[in-house]
Design a protein around this nucleic acid. Structure first.
Lengths: 172, 172
DNA sequence: AAGCCTTTTTAGAATTATTCTTGATATTGT
DNA sequence: ACAATATCAAGAATAATTCTAAAAAGGCTT
């Protein structure tokens, strides 16, 4: 009971990548990813759902969440969380930050995240800026290095050795 | 039916400020604010609730939310949102950023938000950094300045003239 | 192509953080 | 003290998201 043609045809290279990596690219995932590539306005899961239904009337919201989660897991899509508003999704894989317009609610991508100033398009006015860091605190990094026999000295790469985090859900 | 002594006595200066500003400092608000000042570990509303109940057994979670919202409105407390985890509350009024430890879940304050590098305590390892900007996009700032008769030229202060935002809830 | 195994989709129930509603209670100004 | 106003409490309501169980689809082997 699958509907007609997809919104966006993925590039052969991308399809190749999927095939090579053992990832199963279902019609639904292809549709969801295609929608995100096509209209890069940071839609919420519900918005993606509404758009997807036009082409696949039988798709369910749970599937949208499943697909988005899968795409996020594969590193093809990024979640954008602003305050407690519904999570938005973004197919821009370049490192970038987000700008939320407090007047119209639009979310724009901002290039070059942090090395002094942001590369804001002309006319944009920043009222509030917020930085969230994640990683290992002193205590935990010490423990980790003791266990792994590493020195823990300076120049540690950003991607520290990952050990299984206990039962942590996707966005923790 | 109000319980015994508060966890933390607020400073006379602060009490003065409340009195002067017409803000009504109720026992519940005082307790909640005191708890945040006393143990600065960025508790969630539920955690504040559990702590408050020890001193005010009759307090309700809704009241905790009310008090926290009021404190946030008065600028005495900041909300800390990390991904979609429950909102945490922070009585540190200094401009600062937050560091989330992906191993133990602790949230630390990080001084000096963005001017090159962050002032991280030794041992902290950053794996991911995220910057969220808020303000006015080009379209909206143009509209605003046309309406207000301002030039819109460079050097605009971060605190642009606020007009009523239509029915926007606290965290939008 | 048939059978078998695994993954995915679906629909709806469940969860969870937060907000809303309503009546009770407390506080302030007169 | 009395009215006017603001706040609190309890539980219902909301909304985003996740979970569950069963059906469907995809792949692989023969």
């Amino acid at each position: 009971m699958v509907a007609g043609c997809l919104t966006v045809k993925l590039s052969p290279e991308l399809l190749q990548r999927f095939a090579a990596s053992g990832i199963r690219l279902t019609k639904q995932r292809e549709e969801v990813f295609g929608l995100l590539l096509q209209k890069r306005d940071h839609p919420t899961a519900t918005e993606v759902f509404l758009r997807a239904k036009k082409h696949m009337p039988s798709i369910s919201l749970a599937t949208i969440y499943n697909c988005l989660d899968a795409l996020v897991d594969w590193g093809l899509v990024k979640q954008v969380n602003l305050d407690r508003a519904p999570t938005r999704y973004c197919a821009n894989l370049q490192e970038h930050s987000h700008f939320y317009c407090e007047s119209c609610g639009a979310i724009s991508d901002v290039d070059i995240p942090f090395d002094g100033r942001w590369d804001l398009p002309p006319g944009f006015i920043v009222a509030h800026a917020e930085v969230s860091l994640k990683g290992l605190c002193a205590k935990c990094s010490a423990e980790r290095f003791v266990r792994d026999g590493s020195t823990g000295a300076g120049g540690v790469p950003a991607q520290y050795p990952k050990t299984k985090t206990p039962n942590q859900k996707r966005h923790s």
